[in-house]
Nucleic acid binder design. Structure first.
Lengths: 145, 145
DNA sequence: TATATTTGCATCGTGAACGATATAAATAAC
DNA sequence: GTTATTTATATCGTTCACGATGCAAATATA
């Protein structure tokens, strides 16, 4: 009754905290360019493949469209992306990078390393990270059902 | 320029996704009792030690008081906790469990196991979890500075 | 072809997170 | 003892997350 309810034994709390703190590490780097962390994730998706419907972006990030839609509209207002109706399927909204959105990639070159360096420590090194990735991937796969 | 921006190489995205999905696994279990996941975390803290000031709860969860205060007020409105001014230090708000809050522990006995079982998979087993915990703890310690 | 269902996106409401700021009480400095 | 600073909490504004619901376009079915 005691041990299982201890905060230190909760995987979820550790994931939640690590996620929050690591996101906070991105904040000053991204904020300088007017970006939030979820917006940065959208850019990662679009830098890999431009011109995607809302649904594909949401699926890639494992988010719902009702989370992504307002986020994209804010990015559109910032001039980072453009949204236009799909030609073959009029229900789709195709999201494309603007020049400003594309140019941000160069400006943010240092971000992955900077954050990567910030987490390097005793048990988290280039050698152990693949194992950590594997476990997180398995957890995600498991919970996606 | 390519690899480092790939979504699959971002530790933060994996932590963020795993955290969200695992929190979602709690949702039906907690929702049945009118609780959210952060509210459940507050209960874990108070079940360990009742009658704590807002600040201690926030520190334990590594959250800011401006996150915890409204959360506690919602819990107070639900009759799960009570808040009273500190006697020796009138600035403090001491948060205590109500009977309803204490009784929830018995009603939620099955929650840790249920969620624990939900994440068991190939690379995440009782043998590997301690290693995962260790890495997450190190990441958290590192980012707390 | 008319109707039903599915799909893609959007809107709405609620509850976090969190930076910025405010306020009052406690403590320190003078 | 008066003033300055720190500390504990609260308020406000913005941006996610996400369940519930709505709507229009596409597809399936009758």
């Amino acid at each position: 009754m005691e041990e299982k309810f201890k905060l230190e034994n909760q995987l979820c709390f550790k994931l939640y905290t690590a996620s929050r703190l690591l996101t906070q590490a991105y904040h000053p780097l991204l904020g300088e360019h007017g970006l939030t962390y979820p917006q940065y994730l959208v850019l990662l998706v679009l830098w890999e493949k431009d011109a995607q419907p809302v649904n594909d972006i949401a699926k890639r990030l494992l988010l719902e469209t009702n989370t992504v839609t307002p986020l994209l509209k804010r990015m559109e207002a910032e001039g980072i992306v453009a949204r236009r109706k799909g030609k073959e399927d009029a229900r789709q909204m195709i999201v494309t990078l603007t020049k400003k959105g594309r140019d941000l990639q160069k400006k943010l070159t240092y971000v992955p390393e900077t954050v990567g360096n910030a987490v390097i420590c005793e048990s988290v090194t280039p050698e152990t990270v693949p194992g950590l990735f594997g476990m997180l991937d398995d957890i995600i796969k498991q919970l996606k059902q």
